[in-house]
Amino acid sequence: MQQASIITDEMKEQLGVEGTPTILEVEKGHIRMMAEALDDPNPLWQDEEYAKKTRYGGIVAPPALLCNARAGTGRGVQMKSPFLRALAGGDELQYYLPVRPGDVITSVSKIAEYNEREGRMGKMLFTIIDTTYKNQRGEVVATSRSTSISY
């Protein structure tokens, strides 16, 4: 028997629609909290004197900084799912420019596709989200493709 799809017309309408932009103001304190959480002592993330002498010319953010739930991936889009439970499926980030303290990163996400699969715990919905991150000069600093799994 053909089972009904869990992807509704309402969900399909959201495909490719750009969500509300979200803003992340990058601060040294936030970068430090990130480095502490990763237990990553790289002085490029925290030591201004050190970082000045590198080709970056100052502190930069570690790659994980844009993995942020406050702004960026999936924020500002209408994520609909028939399920309550959710897990992250994966992340792919392309980096173009360093992110520095003082940068104001505006990100815009859109739902690129839905996939439904039969999993160990029943039906699962995979939602693929694409995001573009631009700095205050309008330069694209990164793009990402993330998968969110609900079940």
């Binding site: 959480a37 990763l38 570690p62 790659p63 994980a64 993995c67 897990l87 992250a88 992340d91």
Partner: peptide, 10 residues
């Protein structure tokens, strides 16, 4: 998951 992403980044 994203913490593991961060560790791979490190």
């Amino acid at each position: 998951g994203k913490l593991k992403f961060g560790l791979l980044g490190q």
